[in-house]
Simulated scan of single mutants.
Amino acid sequence: MGFNDFMKNLSGNRFTGLQGGRHDMAFMRSLQRDLKTKQTTSIPLNELQVIVFDLETTGFHPDKGDQILSIGAVKVTGRLVEDEYYSLVRFIEEIPPLVKELTGLDESELVNAPEPAEAIEQFFKFSGASPLVAHHASHEKAFMTYASRKYFRSPFLHRLIDTSFMYRIADPDNPYVRLEDCCEHNQIPVTGRHHALGDARLTAALWAVYVEKLQKMGVTTLSQVYERLATIR
């Protein structure tokens, strides 16, 4: 499958989660059990279902009051795109001007959006216990860790894979850090930048590229990715 076909598949059916209702704590408890027992490190990378996701936020520090504004995610196995998730997140304050300009989000869109706990619960129902993938994932990890504790009183247990794990092995001389630069370096057309679902789609395409590159190098599982990373200083 070529890149154009891959990107076309990214615009398929979109999961929007459940509407309304109280938090499904039975589901959250079941998810926690699944996450503790799920083994993913020995599954071939091209057969491993992952959830590639991105967050748009008001800033970088959830512990200092920054909040999630939108969540975008793509469920993908190898190059097969299976589903998508996107949700705005309720926010009743003024969006910081730089964030507003960068993302194109507007206060009027967010005031009637799902509450943060609801949007995140829906995301977890979409992702299940599958590993999560993000581009330079420390940002997403900080917010999901904070949200899990705040809204569900539980730790964030999902395995989180950073795309940098992949290109540090497969493309060690790659000087690029920004998502758009990494995509252009790999001939992935950059569209929908700074939109949570747009960035998730770009990251999913990047993930597919590096899964293929790693396979050609004989690195075929997450376990082998971690082993190879341990040798890189």
Results as ranks from 00 to 15, higher is better:
38 K>W: 12
69 L>Y: 05
75 K>P: 01
96 P>F: 05
35 L>F: 04
62 P>R: 04
120 I>C: 04
31 L>F: 08
38 K>H: 13
126 F>Y: 10
107 E>M: 11
110 L>Q: 07
62 P>I: 00
12 G>Q: 08
39 Q>M: 09
44 P>T: 02
56 E>D: 02
42 S>W: 09
55 L>Y: 07
77 T>A: 05
49 Q>L: 07
99 V>P: 11
50 V>L: 03
122 Q>N: 15
63 D>C: 12
49 Q>C: 09
112 N>H: 11
56 E>L: 05
46 N>V: 04
112 N>L: 09
24 D>V: 09
107 E>V: 06
113 A>D: 02
10 L>T: 15
97 P>L: 06
77 T>S: 08
117 A>T: 11
16 T>Y: 15
51 I>G: 01
57 T>C: 05
58 T>I: 00
70 S>T: 05
95 I>M: 01
106 D>M: 13
141 K>Y: 10
77 T>H: 04
133 V>I: 07
116 P>G: 04
71 I>L: 13
37 T>H: 12
16 T>M: 13
88 L>K: 11
43 I>P: 11
102 L>Q: 08
53 F>M: 12
125 K>C: 07
149 R>N: 14
43 I>R: 12
11 S>P: 03
33 R>N: 09
34 D>P: 10
30 S>F: 14
149 R>Q: 13
17 G>V: 00
85 Y>T: 01
17 G>W: 06
74 V>P: 06
12 G>C: 06
99 V>C: 09
103 T>F: 08
52 V>A: 09
10 L>Q: 15
10 L>V: 08
22 R>M: 11
146 Y>I: 00
33 R>L: 09
143 F>C: 01
73 A>R: 10
148 S>W: 07
50 V>N: 03
111 V>P: 06
49 Q>V: 13
141 K>I: 03
77 T>Y: 07
150 K>G: 02
92 I>T: 11
73 A>G: 08
67 Q>P: 04
103 T>G: 03
27 F>I: 00
62 P>K: 02
130 S>A: 13
127 S>A: 15
73 A>P: 10
131 P>C: 00
138 S>V: 08
45 L>S: 01
39 Q>H: 11
78 G>H: 10
120 I>W: 04
146 Y>P: 00
